[in-house]
Design a protein around this nucleic acid. Structure first.
Lengths: 241, 241
DNA sequence: GAATGAGGTGTACGCCGTACACCTTCGTCG
DNA sequence: CGACGAAGGTGTACGGCGTACACCTCATTC
């Protein structure tokens, strides 16, 4: 109690307040307009104070992405995978339209954040529950590409042990990678299923290297061109010339 | 001639050498690794020297994009629009794979450069010559989205007079915009045709505002989901499980 | 009431892009 | 021939950035 009067002390600031302020600022000033210094000022605090709550700007961005991705609606129930995927993707779109900077941040980030992986895993799960094969689901995810964001785009999907500690180990490294892999399989079963489908190589290196980007690209391209050709053939037109 | 010996003077550096050096550097150090200072050092010159050849870093990036886009093969001849578009897009892909930084730069740039507009215009032209309606072509371009890069992505395509000069005019502004519009229609006829299709509003504001992003997004999404559903129904599998 | 540790501060470093004034070199023209 | 003007290169400096590091200030706990 005591000296509470003289201070009008601002309440102590925490990771969540920092992230929310950052999101708000990016929403209105854009990605470029977001700096640690500006953000600190807005929070009435010296720049270095932020570093008590986020390790650095990269982690700030990651945290912001987590917040945005958290706004996406949970998956729809029901047997119609087509409807469920559609609804989910459109919900993602709504979230990203609310935060226009977010897509760029998600895509520029080398390693996807957990919330992103959760989302992708769950979309994959919807395809799989709908009865699509692992194979087709894999290609479908690539084809959706940045329409569900983040799964296409060359990024070697997530080699899991990126954040580790000691440099000491030697054979340790492989063990560690395998352990990480196992943890990942538990948490993101569908992603791992898809990533490792087909070839039964050693676990670690397969994750990113296992698929043929060129094939994926042409698959998606042809899907689109086929669709367009079909519409053309049947004289399709959007009502509203 | 005279004192040529003592100097070993480097030949005088020009815009093209600067751009090529920048491309080379970005190719091997990535987008982040490209700084005016670093580039200058590589060219054996003081940073400010670069500014005699490019106005600023933005223009440097634009110039680099022009070079990369220039590597895309010219459009294929022949009556098969599907083949022609496919070939063109795959050629674009090859160019962009050679310069992995380029896609990001193209997409982050607010206003497309002329070479980009040329490319887009010519792809559109291929669809149109194949007999596709303006309407369908429009949606097809959106659906291809970043697969042909740059045409989707909310960016309000190119309001043409962005680089002008004096702030003086008043009614002048509209005239100037119309003139720019006309020039644009001459240079990029297909883009303008598509952008202004349907509604016959006043010229200027129509360019970006004239299309319904949500519709375009759902069009593309459904094209993909339809395709996937069709493949699923017929038990499709990529040979190579 | 001393110890602890979380949260906030101040200073400083090394990057960045680039404005501005200056110097050098060289082709042109009187 | 010599003066000149422009094109190209230099040097210095400014304001911004992210952030390392040492410090201070409290509230909490034993």
């Amino acid at each position: 109690m005591a000296q509470q009067a003289d201070t009008e002390r601002r309440k102590p600031l925490n990771r969540d307040r920092v992230l929310r302020a950052a999101v708000a600022r990016a929403d209105q000033s854009g990605y470029e307009g977001l700096s640690m210094r500006g953000l600190a000022q807005e929070l009435g605090v010296v720049p270095m104070a932020l570093y008590k709550h986020v390790a650095n700007k990269e982690q700030l961005l990651d945290g912001m992405v987590e917040l945005v991705v958290g706004e996406i609606d949970p998956p729809a129930e029901g047997p119609d995978w087509r409807f469920a995927v559609r609804a989910r993707v459109l919900s993602a779109r709504r979230a990203l339209l609310r935060h226009p900077w977010a897509l760029r941040v998600i895509e520029s980030r080398g390693t996807p954040t957990p919330a992103v992986l959760d989302y992708l895993d769950s979309v994959i799960g919807t395809f799989r529950r709908g009865g699509l094969s692992v194979d087709l689901t894999h290609h479908a995810m690539h084809a959706l590409g940045s329409r569900v964001w983040g799964f296409t785009q060359e990024l070697s999907v997530a080699s899991p042990g990126a954040g580790g500690g000691s440099e000491g180990g030697d054979v340790d490294v492989d063990e560690r990678a395998l352990a990480a892999m196992a943890a990942m399989a538990e948490r993101y079963p569908h992603i791992v299923e898809i990533a490792t489908a087909g070839r039964a190589h050693d676990g670690a290196s397969v994750v990113g290297g296992g698929c043929d980007d060129q094939f994926e690209f042409e698959f998606a391209l042809d899907l689109l061109l086929d669709g367009v050709a079909r519409l053309h053939a049947q004289g399709w037109t959007s009502e509203r010339g």
